[in-house]
Amino acid sequence: MRFLAIAVAAAVLIALPLVTTGYVVYLANLLLTFTVLCLGMHIVIGETGQFSLAHAAFYGIGIYAAGIAGTTFGTPFPVSILIGGLAASAIGFVIGMVALRMRDIYLALATFAFGEAMQWVFLNWNAVTGGPNGLRIAPARLFGLELVTDKDAYPFVVATAIAMLVLTVIVARARLGRSFRAVRESEIAAQAMGVPVRRTKVVAFGISAFFAGIAGGMFTLFSTYIHPDSLGFQTTILVLTMVVVGGLGSIGGAVGGAIAFGLISELLRQAPSFQEIAYGAILIVFMMYAPKGLFAFLADRFRGARHA
């Protein structure tokens, strides 16, 4: 079953640029970027059970850091992406150390406030971010290679997304992943087992910010322009919705949610005034009828049908 899913995914990823137009490839690039954002959100909220409502801010830090590195300093794009990830995670660790003294709704509010503050910084730090004019991003470069079109960028976007997926699986299986889940399930018991709870939360937050920063770096591979408007709370909520719709707590859910909900939201772009209402409605429907997410819901149905 899993093998089949991987085979189908690989076939689709390979065939996509061969049989489709630029717009579809752009969409694929964007969905893969959101997949990495979702994996980061999954680590902090799905694995560790901590609220983080600053995901768009870390994404933005990644975009600006990678974009400025590549455009102004001409770094090769793998280095730019890494700079994006490291910048986001460095700030993530610092914010995590302060914010994770709080829990639940207070943690949610603190991270929300940080997200809003960062958007204000993006909008007003004209010298660095270009402020309300946005930032032009030069085509990504590596030695002689220059990524001009979406199709040029696509293989590297795919490779980065796969690398981050593999990294997620490695972390989840490792002792660190067990510590994350222990903290999620019972902080008091985790502590009694010798898991350093505070440090584990900060590490989860930092890794999650790293993923968001890498996603920001991926964005610079296929985009020429970024404006602070697209780095607000709405984007965080979009990522959160993807993870919840896919199924909180599972890697497959995070990936599936990003792709399924990403497609839905792209279809809804035709009717922008309904977009937000539709997001809300979808979230409510899932909370009510499939709280474990789309994939657990389908798996249950499938299993039920087989047993019937």
């Binding site: 067990r178 889940r181 222990a182 399930e185 019972s186 985790a190 087992m193």
Partner: peptide, 14 residues
């Protein structure tokens, strides 16, 4: 105070 969503084996492993 068990790790409810985890298996018996994983509880002991933690």
């Amino acid at each position: 105070e068990l790790f409810n969503e985890l298996t018996v084996y994983e509880n002991i492993l933690i």
